[in-house]
């Protein structure tokens, strides 16, 4: 039972990690590429970390929760880096498929 749950979590995590990077390689402008790594990859690695926490909790006696720390950290930092990257790209006027916002005071 635990084995099946672990396998599902690991596979889901690996697939999402892969799709995030696929988006990074495949999409056409910087702003759309930003979406893959921030969401898909974060959830993918989150799944893998939860699988790891579950695995070590079952295998060794006693709960192993420190993987949750990395998951939390990734979920807190991913949007911050995405925001900063988007801000930097707006500042540098990186080529975009969407019309860039009119009141672009990204220089501050």
């Amino acid at each position: 039972m635990i084995d099946i749950l672990l396998s599902v979590l690991i596979l889901t995590g690996a697939i999402f990690t892969f799709i995030g990077s696929l988006g990074l390689a495949r999409l056409r402008d910087f702003y759309t590429r930003l979406h893959g790594p921030t969401k898909a990859t974060t959830l993918g690695v989150g799944c893998l970390l939860i699988a790891s926490a579950l695995y070590f909790s079952v295998r060794e006696e006693g709960v192993s929760l420190h993987e949750v720390l990395v998951t939390l950290f990734l979920f807190i930092t991913a949007p911050v880096s995405a925001h900063l990257l988007a801000k930097a790209a707006l500042h540098l006027k990186v080529r975009s498929l969407a019309a860039t916002p009119p009141d672009n005071d990204a220089a501050d």
Partner: peptide, 9 residues
């Protein structure tokens, strides 16, 4: 992030 995934695996 991919490296973290590899390490966890």
């Amino acid at each position: 992030v991919n490296t973290i995934a590899l390490l966890v695996l």
